[in-house]
Nucleic acid binder design. Sequence first.
DNA 1: ACTAGGTCCTGGTTGC
DNA 2: TGCAACCAGGACCTAG
Length: 279
Amino acid sequence: MPELPEVETVRRGLEPRLRKRCVTKVEVLRPASIDYPSPAQFARNLRGRSFNTIDRRGKYLLFNLDNGAKLGAHLRMSGRLLVVSSDQQNVAREEHVRVKMHLDDGKLLLFEDMRVFGRLWLIPANTPVEDVVPALQELGVEPLSDELNVAYLKGALARKSQAIKSALLDQTIIAGIGNIYADESLHLAGISPLRGAGNLTGRQLEALVVRIKEVLERAIEKRGSSLRNYTDSDGVNGNYQSAAYVYGRTGQECRQCGSTIVRVKLGGRSTHYCPRCQK
DNA sequence: ACTAGGTCCTGGTTGC
DNA sequence: TGCAACCAGGACCTAG
């Protein structure tokens, strides 16, 4: 579920809570949630390590550890990372807690993941992160950096026949955009999600770049989306949902022109847009 | 090389 | 009310 703004919100929430905290014990409750190394090695090698800063790349979180190793995490659809007191574990649903990391201040870092698509990695010191998490090698530009500009997007989309919505979800082009913010960005840019990615005009490319940044920044300010069961590291809901223009508003009036928002399937994903505003 | 589609899972919601 | 079908914010893998 989490897209870039939600992952960034989690990063900001966890960093001050985890910094200088030492992991005293690791319980892997669902072995398949650990992608690398083996669950036993993961637990053994993480124990005794202290957290430093936390980096984010697209929807990936990378926790820097005191010995140069890194803890990698991808929340996929339903993952959450929560820091809770031992008497507040009910913030997470016990049956969905996949990994439990005990901290030296008595608190717990919980990896909760109902749909079990999420993954954790432990990247050894002196090992390139991409060697352990290959997808990072292929990851596209960070949308909030200057790397995402009209020239880059024009080149990346040139001669692409797929729908622009599908291209926005392609993490090797831009890292971090998911289904909600793809729909929202296209709406504000006035571009139909069905339009061929390679056929955007210069003006549309410009609008899209501006709107992607605007939508993501605004969502981060609002601490992420509150759709479904998304919460930050405190278990508090974000509140982007009330600000959505098209996502989840099928059948409702377009906030800009009053027409009816429609929903279609595109690449297996539900896609919301205003047929009148978006061409 | 690109792209669409199926798949991994569990649980909440919708509609008959 | 009960139950089945559908839906979910991601991304990998395969086949065409």
